[in-house]
Amino acid sequence: MSSALLVSTGVIALAEIGDKTQLLAFLLATRFKKPIPIIIGITLATLINHGLAGVVGSWITANVDQSVLRWVLGASFIAMAVWTLIPDKIEDEETQLATKLGVFGATFITFFLAEMGDKTQIATVAMSAHYNDVLMVVAGTTLGMLIADVPAVFAGDKLAEKIPMKLVHRIAAAMFAALGVATLLGIGSNFKL
């Protein structure tokens, strides 16, 4: 199994815990109690959103000088580590669409929009540029989102109360920081020192 897939899955699964899109999954699940359309909406929105992010990462790899890219990506991963430590809140208007579009439509649109500029989307861009393997990174980031969000859909608020959010965020932040340091040192990527 590729390291791009494994790292992308693990980092995103941890980073997603407590993220606004996981909070959105909790909210939609408790409001509509229809897990299948919610999960399908999450999956499609994530695939498209992270697919676009992966393509952007690949474009960056092809068009930015490797020595500059290494420093930008290393700094980006370290910034992601800091960002992961800041808890997300969800806006209620992100769920207002459900009354007009149905459960699937509301989930798809709110997840797609909530992921725009979110730390997991930016991490997908950075990991795609780091590993230069769009398919494995997008598969991993999508799988990581589902690992974190599907239990949220089925368990709702009961699960959130039992997860030590601060610990999970610290572990995810440590993983992003490690990726940043590894990138800066040229370890585990295509970058040369």
Rank of each mutant, 00 (worst) to 15 (best):
A45F: 02
I86L: 10
T46G: 10
A53K: 04
N49R: 14
M165G: 06
G117V: 00
I78C: 01
Q96S: 15
L85D: 01
V138L: 08
W59N: 13
T124S: 13
G54D: 09
I147R: 09
K100I: 09
L159D: 11
A81F: 01
T124F: 06
L85A: 03
T43I: 08
A174W: 02
M80Y: 05
V150H: 07
G156D: 08
T84L: 10
K100P: 12
G41S: 04
K119N: 11
L69N: 07
M136Q: 13
N132Q: 05
A81V: 04
V137L: 05
T95P: 07
D133N: 13
T142D: 06
T120Y: 13
S58N: 02
G144E: 04
V55H: 10
L52G: 14
G140T: 06
L159T: 06
A79D: 05
V72R: 01
S128F: 12
M80D: 02
M145P: 02
V168F: 05
M175S: 08
V150A: 08
F154C: 01
L52W: 08
T61C: 05
K162F: 09
K119A: 14
F112R: 03
G54Y: 00
H50Y: 04
F77D: 11
A114L: 11
K119Q: 05
K162E: 10
V168Q: 04
M127I: 11
I40A: 15
P87N: 11
K89W: 10
L159M: 13
D149C: 02
L85N: 07
S76Y: 00
D88N: 05
G74F: 11
D88P: 07
E91N: 12
Y131T: 04
L159I: 12
L143S: 07
S58P: 00
F111Y: 12
M116A: 12
E161T: 02
L135H: 13
W71N: 15
A160R: 03
G51A: 07
A75V: 08
K119Y: 14
W59Q: 14
F104M: 04
V137E: 07
D118N: 07
R170E: 14
T107D: 01
I39Q: 12
L73T: 08
T107L: 02
E93Y: 14
E94Y: 14
P151Y: 00
G105L: 02
A129M: 00
G117W: 06
G117S: 06
V153I: 00
P164R: 03
V138K: 06
N63L: 11
A155L: 15
I147C: 01
M80A: 08
T141L: 09
W71H: 14
V64Y: 11
P164K: 01
F77Y: 12
A172M: 03
I163D: 08
S76N: 06
T43V: 05
T99Q: 15
Q121N: 11
W59M: 14
K119W: 10
E93V: 14
A126L: 07
G41M: 03
L44G: 12
I163G: 09
T141V: 12
Q66L: 15
T84R: 02
A114Q: 05
W59V: 15
A139M: 12
V168Y: 01
H50A: 06
V150N: 01
T120H: 05
A172L: 07
L44D: 13
D133T: 01
K119T: 12
G102L: 00
L73A: 03
V64H: 04
I147Q: 01
K158G: 14
